[in-house]
Design a protein around this nucleic acid. Sequence first.
DNA 1: ATCCGCGAGGTGGTCGGACCACTATGCGCC
DNA 2: GGCGCATAGTGGTCCGACCACCTCGCGGAT
Lengths: 247, 247
Amino acid sequence: MDDETAPQKGTVTQRAIERIKAMIGEGRLEPGQRLPTERDLAVQLGISRSSMREAIRALTVLGVLEARHGSGIYVTQLEAGDLLETFGVVADLSRGPRLVELLEIRRILESTATALAAARITADQLAEVEKHLAAMNATDDPEEILAHDLAFHREIAVAAGNETMAAILEGLSSRTFRARVWRGYQEEGAFARTRREHAAIHRALAARDPEAARAAAAAHVGEVEEWLRAQLGPQGRSPGPDVPPLT
Amino acid sequence: MDDETAPQKGTVTQRAIERIKAMIGEGRLEPGQRLPTERDLAVQLGISRSSMREAIRALTVLGVLEARHGSGIYVTQLEAGDLLETFGVVADLSRGPRLVELLEIRRILESTATALAAARITADQLAEVEKHLAAMNATDDPEEILAHDLAFHREIAVAAGNETMAAILEGLSSRTFRARVWRGYQEEGAFARTRREHAAIHRALAARDPEAARAAAAAHVGEVEEWLRAQLGPQGRSPGPDVPPLT
DNA sequence: ATCCGCGAGGTGGTCGGACCACTATGCGCC
DNA sequence: GGCGCATAGTGGTCCGACCACCTCGCGGAT
């Protein structure tokens, strides 16, 4: 009754976003459930369809809603992967010192995840890890190496048993992020070193040795971290060509 | 030249989002810089103002852009706090087993951050920590305790020297998140224990003892984590009163 | 000459309607 | 009974208008 008088805080779109978020938070909207149509929702919240669409778009990019053309709007499964997809944006837009900070976080999480994986990994999962390890060593195509490298670490993160952590690590290792950092790193003949480090991680996993796994993973990420730190130190500028701002 | 023919992938809004993100990623749009008007941008990208507004709204909720009514659209400083604000959404919308996973991640990061802080914290920062510790012990108002509790950990995270990690921890400790979990936790007379744990963390910081700090922080978060795990185990339901879905 | 105030222009915010693209459903035809 | 197409309904896009708010410069008062 008392909420009929508009609180008038912020834009109507922002209010609509909060309303829908609240509905989900309170359990009035279950994962996978279909929402009313844009037009109905707009009427229910007393706003125009344009504003409602902006709210839906916002919740869509956040991974909370999913719009299917011609079908309807649905709540996602609200799983870690859905909601943490935006984490990749942070990695992609960060540069300079923040890249080092992101790698530091990845080192902390990746080492812990690898240690957990050493204790929990199943035979099947270990076989999957070995598959990517072999594929990584069997080709010279940087694209393919990168893909299997990502899958290698992803499999380990999943084996650690924490889906959320796996999703965060996935974001911290997004294609564009690694491509940017690794472009220079691997040009310095770091392939061999990378292979040795991956082999060490695999050995620790196969031996079910959490401490060795933690150390190997920390060293693996730490190598890249140190290299990047050194890159930024001397010149203080982020890599890449300086493109003058267009009109 | 070859990009003049529309690639026709996805919705025009999604394409606009990618375009603007790319402009920022390539450095053509600097942090803090003002963008052209919505109307001009729409013309430049060859889409309607409505679609452009949806793209801008999307980038706004991601913390990449900031729209000031009557003034213009600006690129944010792209700092950790700006981009990771959405991380709180994850915490707010997660429930059940995922809450435990989030606490596990917080335990890993918070313990490491506290260890780093023990080695790096300045006298001023330590005084600030003590201020919040004292304020926390001087009141019985749960709201105020929660606020100083958040500030206590935030100050430590900042002292660790990794802004990004501080921002993530901030998201993992968002008001609504903690309020939900702590409501039940603190009702079990955990105030005294919490105060002891905070005191232990402070002692380790004052003694500049990283290992003790790591252990104290891990135990602090671990306590809540274990309690929550126990809550979820027996009944398999998320805590809190079972409110029947409202109409 | 300096300062203050107010008004005009420009900006994002909201609205309503129209049409297009796609999907799903069911009815009728084979 | 099964298949295919017409159709209604959905999200996607566009347009034009108006509103609320901020900014800046012009003009007058001091």
